[in-house]
Amino acid sequence: MRRKVPQFVCALFGILLFALYFSSHPLARALSQLVLVEYWQIIFAFTLLVGVVSFLKVNLKSIERGEDRPYRIVSLMGLLSMPIVAFFWGIKGGTPFMWIFENIQVPMQSTVFALLAFFVVSASFRGFRARSVSASVLLVSALLTLLARSDVGGLLSEHLPVVADWVRNNPSMSARRAILIGIGLGSVTTSLRVIVGIERTWLGGKQQ
């Protein structure tokens, strides 16, 4: 019963939303609006709650065990302080919430994101080697793109940006299209498997 009810609800809403997507009937539109605006948001709120509770439990346990204690305390302080600040002063411009967001969260996240540039540089130096024919093709394509996307590409040769654009618009786009079609087919297959009840791993526990 614990598995059959969620499976039934999942199949019902899967089929319903699939049908509503293709219907322009006013009743279908109204139902779709209700499911999308009201129900989906309620489900989202509950998933958020599950996430927060899980985060709290994991971190509190780790603090108890003494694992990475300072980092986890800072994480919990962040998790608790932001809702408190938002509750008392709101989240609009000029509030303490936005001050923390703009002066702590944005610089920290931008810093972490910027570190990627350093890792790319290090990885390029150590890993981008012409070890085989396919690695050489990748290497030449990368060099062409890098040159073309900087301003010196056109100065070295007027053909360089043209060649780089050809790489982007032909081999690169073909590969991207193949990936997109693969993702699309995979999504349809997985959705159908979930709706008809073949795929049940999302229910958790042992397969029955």
Binding site: V121, S124, F125, L139, A142, L146, V152
Partner: peptide, 23 residues
């Protein structure tokens, strides 16, 4: 920011070339 980006692109290209020569 474009000059910084262009220079860092050239720096990456230089490193790739050096890495391959060493290899």
């Amino acid at each position: 920011g474009m000059l910084a980006q262009t220079c860092s692109h050239l720096y990456v290209i230089l490193l790739i070339v050096i890495g391959n020569v060493l290899y």
